[in-house]
């Protein structure tokens, strides 16, 4: 229904325009749907528009949770692909 990816604002380039970056790839997008965009914000991009800011505290909490769950899981990270 709505593919969107997290990207980081690296430059405010005009009224409702920002440059965002992910893995070195940069793109110009519209910030008309969010309030007070700042350089350093992470935003969710859909069809060339930032549709929401990412709450980085929540994002990092989830990463921590997943790391803990990973340790609980028993499987060793087997490097061999398939039999």
């Amino acid at each position: 229904m709505c593919l969107a990816v997290p990207m980081k604002i690296v430059e405010i380039a005009g009224k409702n325009i920002a440059v965002v970056e992910a893995d070195g790839a940069k793109a110009r997008i519209s910030t008309s749907l969010i309030t007070n965009p700042q350089v350093g914000d992470f935003v969710i991009i859909h069809a060339g528009y930032a549709i929401e800011k990412i709450n980085q505290k929540e994002a990092d909490l989830r990463i921590l949770l997943f790391k803990e769950l990973a340790e609980l899981s028993q499987i060793p990270d087997n490097n061999a692909a398939l039999p």
Binding site: V5, A22, D23, G24, A25, A81, L82
Partner: peptide, 18 residues
């Protein structure tokens, strides 16, 4: 195939996701 063994460059991977 094993998806973890398929090499993808950052730029191409990011654009494919976008």
């Amino acid at each position: 195939l094993d998806s973890r063994k398929i090499p993808v460059s950052n730029g191409a991977g990011a654009l494919a996701e976008i």
